[in-house]
Design a binder for these strands. Sequence first.
DNA 1: CTTAGTGCAAAGCTTTTGCACTGCA
DNA 2: TGCAGTGCAAAAGCTTTGCACTAAG
Lengths: 150, 150
Amino acid sequence: MPETQDKFKVLLREHGLKVTNQRIAILQVLNTRPNEHLTVDEIYDYVKEDYPDIGLATVYRTILLLTDLNLVEKLNLEDGYVRYEIGDKDRDKAHRHHHLICLECGSISSFQDDLLENLENKIFSSIGFKVEDHEVKLFGRCRKCRNNAD
Amino acid sequence: MPETQDKFKVLLREHGLKVTNQRIAILQVLNTRPNEHLTVDEIYDYVKEDYPDIGLATVYRTILLLTDLNLVEKLNLEDGYVRYEIGDKDRDKAHRHHHLICLECGSISSFQDDLLENLENKIFSSIGFKVEDHEVKLFGRCRKCRNNAD
DNA sequence: CTTAGTGCAAAGCTTTTGCACTGCA
DNA sequence: TGCAGTGCAAAAGCTTTGCACTAAG
């Protein structure tokens, strides 16, 4: 996805930040693995394949940067690992992007649904809280694990 | 709420665990502050008022125990603190218990809604994932903060 | 050239663990 | 009395930070 890379370069320059090989390499890793929900260590390992001298601190700093620029989303699945995934370029789609977490095998999948729109309107009119973002996590058992249990 | 305390004592004994002053004191703190979403440090400080010699490790161990016994719920609001609150004794109600987090003042409020039932059925029939629990967090601005901004 | 970015190692935090002691059952 | 529970301090993770060096603009 060179378009994300270009967007990234533009964003960096707009903010007076430098375009470095390390930053591009990290974005590349996240970009080529859109549905893997990577931990920092996993990102670090993947990036080292292309860029063996990179330091873990740079990975942390770059991920923070990417998150601030809204190119990457942080994910906490309560499994003890903090994960990151490339964000959807379409802000509205990202807003409808939720996660299914299997309690048995730990697999993570995503689904899209605008299920919360009504609720958010209801909350606004009843207590005046204006919802700007939301996070929905569904925990359970995936088909495979349920079949294995039989 | 002596009923929760009694339930707790019964649960402990059922599991062959001992009823100690420390455990009761920690449950008491959570019980008397049902809507405060306390961090471990806050719990530790409150318990020390009644029980000054308690160790932080005991607080961690007891909270883990309470969570395992489903008396306490863990909450991660992405604000850098892990929080705990007393769980609803009614399992179904707990399942419909969600959080509103104000991005400006950090206030946390709860609301109840069974909004996800349809969705969960839909997910089960389409991909065979059986949802057993869910977590919904809504981020935005509370009425007070929106008014202050004007 | 200038200074943001980087790698490394050290420091900081939260949470967990090992061990000798305490107190519930 | 016996063993689960506790307090303390050390260890273990993960993440951040300070500093001298490197490289982007």
